[in-house]
Design a protein around this nucleic acid. Sequence first.
RNA 1: GCGCCAGUAGCUCAGCUGGAUAGAGCAACGGACUUCUAAUCCGUAGGUCGAGCGUUCGAGUCGUUCCUGGCGCGCCA
Length: 558
Amino acid sequence: MKKRVVRFVEKAVAVVAAARGFKSSDLPEIGIELPREKAFGDFSSNIAMQLSGCWKDNPRAIGAALKDELDKEADLARVTIAGPGFINMTLELSCWHRRLQEIMGQGADFARLDYGRGRRVLVEFVSANPTGPLHIGHGRGAAVGDVLARLLKRTGFAVDREYYVNDAGNQMMVLGRSLRWRYLELLGRRQGEIPDGYYRGDYLLEMAKELLANQGAELVAANIDEEDETGIEFFTKLAADDILVGIRDDLDLFGVEFEHWTSEKEFFTSGRVDAALADLKKTEVLYEEEGAVWFASSRFGDEKDRVVVRANGVKTYFASDIAYHREKYERGYDLLIDIWGADHHGYVPRLKAAIEALGNEPESFAAILVQLVSLSRGGTPVAMSTRSGEFVTLEEVVKEVGKDAARYFFLTRRSDSQLEFDLELAKSRNNDNPVYYAQYAHARICSILRKAKEEGLKPNPDKTSFGASLILPEELDIIKKLDNFTALLESAARTLEPHRITYYLDELAAQLHSYYNRNKVITEDLQVSGDRLLLVDTIRQVINICLTLLGVSAPEKM
RNA sequence: GCGCCAGUAGCUCAGCUGGAUAGAGCAACGGACUUCUAAUCCGUAGGUCGAGCGUUCGAGUCGUUCCUGGCGCGCCA
């Protein structure tokens, strides 16, 4: 609808520009907004103010000239000039009624946009080290990443989700040592507290017990000396594989699926890290100093240069990450989105530098930083640390509060603002939980539709009289809100901010609840009932789309 | 010390590419179920948008300087 109004204004501006002898080529872009105040009409434009500078005339005079042109449009019921020069426009009611019918007619395909024009996007998220179960912080990343992927898909991107398994490096050795220690502990060959720096979560103890039960003591114990690192690789692989299975299960429970699981280790073994470094070397951004190989990331805006190969010959995590992102581009993606914990923000400039050094557009890479989730229980902070084993797992939370509430909760805030997750609050199944509000609206409409069906009524399909009885201000507001959904999705996709869906949904649900309490949908009047059924059914449809985007169920009864 | 993110109602937070009189939920207070689902609704009250300066027709939004909080500044991942 907005685009139609933009065209009206464009046309008017072109006519007036021609009359005043200005070229149509150097006109500013037409901005159309939804005014805050209803009294200002359906749409408003500030174009007169923008033109006043280059046309050397006052905004109200320009506005008046534009108004004369706009008054010729049959679909515009009213055009006024207000304040410093706003052009306020009100559409004919019939336009809104037609729009409602149109939205309903598009069904589940409403707001399926072509904004992305088929560009290929890779959204990489969670990517937690396979050193322990996913905790609540990973849950936030999972929710944001998954919903963002769904959003981009709907707005016209070709999207893949990817989990990068960080199965290389020191941490994996520590994991192996930790499991081996637990195993030896069960055999009575280790006593006391597990050493500092080891992972001490209960899951490793459980794993060790299972290992002992399945494989016995001799199989692996025979060759293990008290002190050396014998068998570490065996334990590492065992632990990592087992944990990864658990991670997949947890994400499955959370409703998150990945198209790809990529292993960091394979980048080393396949020689891709070396190939990436060779590429960088060609562009002369690598140099040696103090025995190490450095990447001159400071030339691309990073605060200092970074080591890619240590003096001991071992390549850094950064080196494999360069290879990883290089490979993403090779796979043909136009846009890379990485979702990281905000504590990794210092890492963004160097990766961006590498991406640029490899000849890619810096704008084709975006890192979304998700702030930490601070955990509390009934208002008391809970410490979280994988190594100490003190944390609440994602699995635990999902099982307690349900997938719907958990996912929704993570999207009630924009990602760069910190989120406090109170376990007591989340676990309590009371009415404070915002997800029920939207779901209830959906169930309520379904209930109305059931009742209508019993009475032989259905949403008005009549192409000539549809919606004509929808004349209440709140009805018009709802239609506008429904119409605005496409713009909302587009802006959410443009800014990569999936939380906007949640807020929109909440507002739409509020409008429905309010409308429901004020008006009866099923009345004596067949025309009115049919039109109102059309209205609420369309609301239901859009709520359904929102909930689907959020990965939250849309119950027909509650 | 440098950098990133945040600072909006008592609390938790929205505020779309700068737009007109700054919003919601919770908490507080007062109302609405013989009615299509009260997991709801309606009303009241609550603000120098951290502070200053600047940019312009116009700033919560942009620039800049401070203040406060979180995080990061490794040849760890």
